[in-house]
């Protein structure tokens, strides 16, 4: 095989290889090489069972950010750190809730923007939250027909 053909093949390989590396890193791995266009908010939940760091954040079903940190505070509340793009401005009456995709699918955080006119600054905490639905409890109540009786 002559040199020119080898050089051509190597060139093609390097292009394809670099393309694959970059696609994997940026698109699939969502690598951020700059960090300036996002900000962080906190959210306080009584239970975030099923949510992990990396869980997605949605507004109206559109993915807008990720959960970057989960800590337990002194009062035994879970404090989530939410990372959101700067383009999304939320007011202080925004409701954050833990939702489930499918019955056993994964958990995500849904934000319902409010309209108070008072914007949340980076680092502020969302206090208006709905914690994880207790599916086992719900199912058992359905199965045993306990809901109606309880309401009576």
């Amino acid at each position: 095989m002559n040199n020119r053909k080898i050089e051509f093949l190597v060139g093609c390989f390097v292009l394809v290889g670099l393309g694959a590396v970059l696609y994997l890193a940026i698109q699939v791995g969502s690598a951020r090489f700059y960090n300036s266009d996002s900000y962080e908010l906190k959210a306080r939940f009584s239970s975030i069972s099923g949510v992990n760091t990396g869980s997605r954040i949605e507004i109206a079903g559109v993915r807008v950010g990720t959960v970057t940190e989960i800590v337990l505070n002194d009062d035994f509340f879970a404090i989530l750190t939410l990372e959101l793009p700067n383009s999304i401005q939320l007011d202080d009456d925004t409701i954050a809730s833990v939702k489930t995709a499918g019955l056993i699918g994964d958990r995500y955080i849904n934000l319902s923007p409010g309209g108070s006119g008072l914007p949340l600054e980076p680092g502020d905490t969302i206090v208006d939250t709905e914690s994880a639905m207790d599916i086992e409890g719900l199912i058992s109540r359905f199965a045993l027909g306990g809901i109606d009786e309880e309401e009576e």
Partner: peptide, 11 residues
């Protein structure tokens, strides 16, 4: 695929 694989995994 996209939401589960993080940069940490790829790295």
């Amino acid at each position: 695929v996209e939401s589960s694989i993080t940069w940490h995994d790829v790295r």
